[in-house]
Amino acid sequence: MIEADRISKTYARGVYALRDLSLRIDKGDFVFLTGPSGAGKSTLLRLLLRRDVPSEGQLIVGGRNLAELTPRQVQAYRRSLGFVFQDFKLLQNKTVLQNVALVPRVLGMPPSQQQRRTFQVLKWVGLQHRMSAYPLELSGGEQQRVAIARAIVNDPVIILADEPTGNLDPDLSLEIMNLFREINARGTTVVVATHDRELIRRVGRRSVTLNHGQIAELA
């Protein structure tokens, strides 16, 4: 599904965020990216989201070299992804329902189907009773569940999450991870960046440890 072939990413002044990194993630895998701050976790996710391209090497997802996609192909590619960030990235001036429904709407799903699907995922994350609330009226854990609902509303093939539990306490973190596990159980590939080793231990999945942009450990 995801194949990184000796990729490097340098920013200005020759700083290597990723260095000669090769990695393979199969369809249906659940992989943690971990490592110290500045190790390159977010950079790898940025490349996977195609917000940036590798300076060297090839990043192949679903058989396509991401660097070679046209802008329109980038759009199509991103529609097959779901993303979750530490800061939730919810729109403050829109309700929970509107935040989630935005995705099927801009992707042109028929209105009746949009609604059904949005209700379905909000119910699944346990927020059907808060649909008309605004993000700031929700707790951090609830906001992150909205973000997860939005990430899966479009039935993505891959979910990419960058520190999704960074702002949450351990119990809430595990709860969120359980949502990811459920998503993964249905066949979606899940990649989660976190520096929370304890959480990784409790979830008990494969982890890739980065350090200075290179793979330090595979477990």
């Binding site: 989201l49 917000r51 802008p71 980038v74 759009q75 199509a76 590619y77 991103r78 529609r79 992804l81 993303f83 990235k89 729109l91 935005l102 995705v103 801009v106 992707l107 042109g108 479009n154």
Partner: peptide, 16 residues
């Protein structure tokens, strides 16, 4: 900006 970023991340068409 936030909204545009999200639109881009979900792969919304340019027109949108």
């Amino acid at each position: 900006r936030d909204e545009i970023e999200i639109m881009q991340l979900v792969g919304a068409p340019f027109a949108y």
